[in-house]
């Protein structure tokens, strides 16, 4: 086994996801399969090949420092479960 159920629980917690016991078992198996496949990829000889972080061979995609019009305030707030004045309202995160 490449990954334990505890590790799945830890990662789930970091991602703020909740799973049932059955789901956890299933996810552990699935993640294991993925990692086993990675092992297979690791066997490929990559000597002299630079690590890459993107699938496309493109560099330096820039925009110029120009201000565009922002969203209409109402639209910006449209998805907010709760608002107060012009701000998003959230549960207090410090005491």
């Amino acid at each position: 086994m490449k990954i334990t159920k505890e590790e799945v629980e830890y990662v789930a917690h970091l991602a703020r996801l909740e799973f049932t016991e059955t789901e956890k078992v299933r996810l552990t198996t699935q993640l294991n399969d993925i990692l086993m496949y990675m092992d297979k990829l690791n066997r490929v000889n990559t000597t002299g090949v630079e690590p890459m972080s993107h699938a496309i061979a493109l560099i330096n995609a820039f925009r110029q420092d120009v201000v565009w019009e922002s969203l209409d305030h109402e639209l910006s707030m449209a998805n907010a479960p709760e608002t107060k004045g012009q701000s998003f309202k959230v549960p207090k995160i410090i005491d």
């Binding site: 565009w68 305030h73 998003f88």
Partner: peptide
């Protein structure tokens, strides 16, 4: 005014594409 300088990119909407400001570099 709060939240008046926002758009889908800086609001974190799904499916948007951030593009790097050259002057920052």
């Amino acid at each position: 005014i709060p939240n008046s300088h926002t758009c889908p990119v800086c609001l974190g909407m799904p499916g948007v594409l951030p593009v790097l400001n050259k002057k920052v570099v």
